[in-house]
Amino acid sequence: MGNCLKSPTADDISLLRGNDSQDGSEASSEPPPPYQESVHVPMYHPAPNISRPASQLTEEEQIRIAKRIGLIQHLPTGIYDGSKKIRECVICMGEFCVGDAVRYLPCMHIYHKECIDDWLMRSFTCPSCMEPVDAALLSTYET
């Protein structure tokens, strides 16, 4: 028991000392550490042209965004296999490649999953036909 308690304490001190002296020498002899990206703060879009971090959203906006994330997860996704008529994602204007992750909207327009999810977080409409996505979702649930 005595050993168990003692050894970690001794170790801790030696580690601290070691670190201290190392840090000191590093600071004096080497340039500061390379630039590191500051912690990524996710931005949310309570409206299409507004971007705010989560900490600056009202409670109402937080709830709406949480609901939105839930609804987006309900929309079917797939892997592009080259068989669809739509060949280009109108958001990035890039052609679909076999193997790309795509998401289908109720109006049957398809987009890269990454592209459309970014848009749906701002506006819950189809970029191509402006059809509101939630209305279509609700009606498919009713039937």
Partner: peptide, 10 residues
């Protein structure tokens, strides 16, 4: 140019 913007526009 504001409210009715869509990323499908160019």
């Amino acid at each position: 140019l504001t409210d009715d913007w869509s990323p499908a526009l160019s």
